[in-house]
Amino acid sequence: MDSGNGSEDGTPWGRGDGQGDDDDINRDWGHKDIPNDVEVLKRVWRNEKSAPEILAYESLLVERVQEQIANMEENILAAAESLDDMMLSIFEMDVNRLMFLLRAYLRVRLSKIDKFALHIMRTADLWDRLSPQEQEYASKFVDVLSKHMHDSVLGKLEKAYESMMKQAASSEENDMIVEPNLDTYVFCRSKTALGTFQLDDKGDETVDMMPNDLYILRYRPVRNLIETDRIELV
C-alpha cells in the first residue's frame, strides 16, 4: 500500500499545513513517516471492521507499524531521563494508541476467521487474503471446531447425517457453511469524485459519488472500490 495518501484531513496525525510543531517533534524522534502509516492503518482497520467479508491482509503495513512501535518504545526509553513526565506520558500514549490500532485490526480479522473459517478455507480467493500465521490459525481452528462437533453431536448420528458441511449425505451442496452476507449495507465515503456508479447489473440503480459525502450502499457492488482503495468504509 502506498503510504503517501491518507493524510489530507487536519487530524492530529495528518501531515497537513501549519503543523510545524509536529514536524519538530517528528524530526527529533526520527519517525517522520508515522502519521501516514497511522492514518493508513486507521483506515484499513475501519474498512476491515465494517466489511462483512475478510479483506486482504496488509502485511507490509503491519510490519512497518510494528517496526515503528519498537522504535518509539526505544526512543522513549532512551529519552526517559531528559524529558519531563508530562512529555513522557504523551509519548507513551502515542505508542499505546498505535498498539491499540494494530491489535484491534488483528482482532477483528481473527473474529471473522472464527466465524467464517470453513467458508474461507474452501474459497481460494479468500484463503489468499490471510497472512501465513492467520492461515495456520484458521486451519487449526477448523480442526478444533470439527473435532468438537464430531465428539459431541455428529459422531452420535447415522452415517448419512454426520457431515459438518452438509445437512445430509443427500444434500447436493455444502448447505451448512456460514457465509458472510455480502448484500448487507455499509457506510462509505469516497475520496475523489467517482462519477456515476452502477449499483446493479441492469443499470437501473446508479449513484453519483461525490468526494467526502457519506453513502449507505449495498456492500456487493462497491467491494471492488474498497479493494482498489477508491472508497473507504466508516
Binding site: 494508541r97 494494530l102 484491534a104 481473527l110 490459525y137 487449526k140 481452528f141 471446531l145 473435532k147 468438537h148
Partner: peptide, 30 residues
C-alpha cells in the same frame, strides 16, 4: 467442550506468540 477450549486457546496463543503481540489486552481504546 473442555477439550475445545483447551485446543482453541492453544491455537490462539500460538498465533499471538508468532506475532509476538498479546491481542487480549487493550480491548477498549486507551
Amino acid at each position: 467442550e473442555k477439550e475445545f477450549v483447551k485446543s482453541y486457546s492453544e491455537a490462539l496463543s500460538s498465533y499471538m506468540t508468532k506475532l509476538d503481540i498479546d491481542l487480549t489486552v487493550d480491548i477498549t481504546p486507551p
